[in-house]
Design a protein around this nucleic acid. Structure first.
Length: 648
RNA sequence: CGCGGGGUAGAGCAGUUGGUAGCUCGUCGGGCUCAUAACCCGGAGGUCGUGAGGUUCAAGUCCCACCCCCGCAACCA
């Protein structure tokens, strides 16, 4: 019997590359929620997919020497593969390059033009010609381009705008009247304080600077803004028709119950998306949940062990359910979680192997050892039984209430509390003592029956989170635990039921040994691969000798305030006058370790301002790409070479 | 500058409307032997970022100031 419909979507993943474990968290979280809703008896529609337009993809495709379509075909397939590796049960994997979707986006755009929600105007701003980008007044650094430090000019460009400003009040009102709309609450305050209170500005919804996107049908040199394109996936795929009759499927499932998204894109989902929907006259989603991030170790990405983590690698090392367990359990409701190999192994051993695996194993083993594998239904007795049974019967309800508010980690904790209680029960009742004396046979049967019942319930409740493990438990108990109602009842297993063979659910890890294995895995798989650029076209010796490259000594070196990349150097170039040069290498060097070093600089470049400071020349570094990451080594010479020596 | 979130035992986190600080891991000691050296019990360990600040009979919990970390800051998805 259906309890009604439930439509959950994840954000569609941007198809610019392989998703790491942080991105993968979202799909696993969504999967756990959807599986739980199905278990409860809802008619679930679970949609995910890839967002495939935009400038960044166009650039990446060009770099890779393929068409954008070829590029997204491959990244989208890779993302889908990872989703499948995680054993996720999405109902539909959508792609924004689907012709059906593209057509509907064009229709929506035209519809907005007709209703006046989109109008043609000019996009104005400070334009940096070399960078081909617009900047706002506040983004400029000393009136110059924040990227390259060059002059900008006031420029304007024809563009289409969405009348977002018109919807400020309506959205504000909606948010106030629906306190559950934005979750967690902190995100809501962020939106209200930063955006709604000051008032929304109209949104530029077309681009002419690149063409990998959906063309505006009435004005094809414009391409539809990716967010209008991407957000609409939530309605176009279920069957919304901008012109004509919506599908029955759409009528049944829209509005969505939850949009599950990363906290970084809450703004798009709680401001722009509602405005688009209001303009279309469609109802708004019931809830947008901006989940926190999963961070790896120190947070900074480096290829060394334990930092860049991909879901498929982790699955290969630890198994799907262990990875699912980790990400679902270790990330609190509202703050970021961390993932390291050490923590991963700790969780596997203490929770999955010890508490869960060992309980199942010892129970099934004892059932075979003492009862020949056959359970007998016996009357419970004593406070130990009552306590265990009460907890077992009430766990489903507690898990449900945690899931209701999307507190997935807490829901899992409830199940583990029951498992811990069961382990304690084994100690309290001491079945091995009962097994020594035939007189205690009935009591022994009652104890093992109670344990199997508890495991049946816990295993059934674990299904949404650890589907593979739950299946193994069912196999060992030789029963099906997918009836929701039965998970709140005790005494479901029939008298005379025979259990299956005991099987290890999670092998306990030998930490030093596993650590070595992990290191070896990464060392082999991610051995540095240096990408080499093709050699540039020939230049003449005259061209080369125009460059005045000289040996310099670093006199002082310090970080540039507010800049992540820049270091400021004072150099002795042999002229007797100190020379100031800025260099974007702060990510690779600490200022103090460079003082006194012998470096090389090109001196005859025109001075240029960066972050308000003048840079007279450029330091020479060796740059290479390793595993897709930039590596930089500042060129340093033997300290015996004097300052001012010319290179040639 | 501004806005938001954080700073609680070695680590990771809870602490609702104020009433002598809890959980998981780790650690130490004990018990048990069915089980994957797993399980159960107990102990140690915290001036709850700072201010011998304010309110209160009472503050991690409310108010004020300051310090540190992390996000956001609108058209780069």
């Amino acid at each position: 019997m259906s309890k009604g419909k439930y439509y959950l979507s994840t954000a569609i993943a941007y198809a610019s590359g392989k998703p790491h474990i942080g991105n993968t968290y979202e799909i696993v979280l969504a999967d756990a929620i959807c599986r739980f809703k199905r278990l409860e008896g809802y008619d679930v529609y679970f949609q995910t997919g890839t967002d495939e337009h935009g400038q960044k993809i166009q650039e990446k495709a060009e770099k890779a020497g393929v068409t954008p379509q070829q590029y997204v075909d491959s990244t989208s397939a890779e993302i889908k593969r990872i989703w499948d590796v995680m054993n996720t049960s999405y109902d539909r994997f959508v792609r924004t390059t689907d012709p059906m979707h593209e057509k509907k986006i064009q229709e929506i755009f035209e519809k907005f033009l007709k209703t006046g929600d989109i109008y043609k105007s000019k996009y104005e701003g400070w334009y940096c010609t070399p960078c081909e980008s617009f900047w706002t007044e506040s983004q400029l650094v000393d009136g110059k381009c924040p990227d390259c430090g060059r002059e900008v000019k006031w420029a304007e460009e024809e563009a289409y705008f969405f009348r977002l400003s018109k919807y400020t009040e309506l959205i504000m009102k909606y948010i106030e009247e629906h306190p559950e709309f934005i979750q967690p609450e902190a995100r809501k305050n962020e939106m209200v304080n930063n955006f709604l209170r000051p008032g929304l500005q109209d949104l530029c919804v077309s681009r002419t600077s690149f063409n990998w996107g959906i063309p505006v049908s009435s004005d094809p040199k414009h391409v539809v803004y990716v967010w209008l394109d991407a957000l609409s996936n939530y309605i176009t795929f279920p069957g919304y028709e901008p012109e004509g009759e919506d599908s029955d499927f759409y009528k049944k499932y829209w509005p969505a119950d939850v949009h599950l998204i990363g906290k970084d894109i809450v703004r798009f989902h709680t401001l722009y998306w509602p405005a688009f929907l209001m303009a279309l006259g469609e109802p708004l989603p019931k809830q947008v949940f901006g989940h926190p991030w999963l961070l790896t170790g120190s947070g900074k990405m480096s290829k060394s062990l334990g930092n860049v983590l991909y879901a498929d690698d982790l699955v290969e090392l630890y198994g799907v359910d262990a990875v699912r367990y980790y990400v679902l359990h270790e990330i609190p409701f509202a703050s970021d979680g961390t993932l390291t190999h050490d923590l991963m192994m700790e969780r596997i051993n203490s929770d999955l192997a010890n508490i869960l695996g060992n309980l199942v194993n010892r129970t099934v083993s004892m059932t075979h050892k003492y009862l020949g594998g056959t359970l007998r239904k016996r009357a419970p007795e004593g406070e130990f039984d009552a306590d265990l049974i009460a907890l077992a019967k009430s766990t489903a309800e507690r898990v449900q209430s945690r899931m209701e508010s999307l507190h997935v980690a807490d829901a899992i904790d409830e199940i583990f509390a029951l498992l811990r209680r069961a382990n304690k029960y084994v100690d309290e009742t001491q079945p091995w003592v009962l097994g020594r004396d035939e007189a205690h046979r009935e009591r022994l049967e009652a104890v093992l029956y109670n344990l199997c019942e508890t495991i049946r319930i816990a295993g059934g409740l674990l299904k949404p989170f650890l589907p593979g493990t739950a299946e193994k438990i069912e196999r060992q108990l030789r029963l099906d635990a997918s009836d929701w109602e039965a998970l709140s009842e005790f005494g479901v297993i029939e008298d005379g039921h025979a259990v299956g063979e005991a099987e290890i659910l999670f092998q306990r890890l030998d930490i030093p040994k596993k650590t070595a294995e992990v290191e070896a895995f990464y060392a082999e798989k991610y051995a540095p691969k240096v990408e080499s650029d093709p050699v540039l076209p020939d230049v003449t010796i005259d061209d080369f000798s125009k460059c005045d490259m000289r040996v310099c000594k670093v006199l002082t070196c310090e970080n540039v305030k507010k800049s992540e990349k820049l270091l400021k150097f004072t150099l002795d170039d042999g002229s007797g006058k100190p020379r100031q040069i800025l260099s974007g290498i702060a990510k690779f060097y600490k200022p103090e370790e460079l003082v006194g070093k012998t470096v090389v600089a090109i001196l005859n470049l025109p001075p240029r301002k960066m972050m308000g400071q003048e840079s007279c020349g450029m330091l020479i570094s060796a740059v290479k790409i390793e595993n897709g990451e930039e590596k930089l080594n500042l060129l340093m010479l033997d300290d015996s070479i004097p300052a001012g020596a010319r290179l040639g």
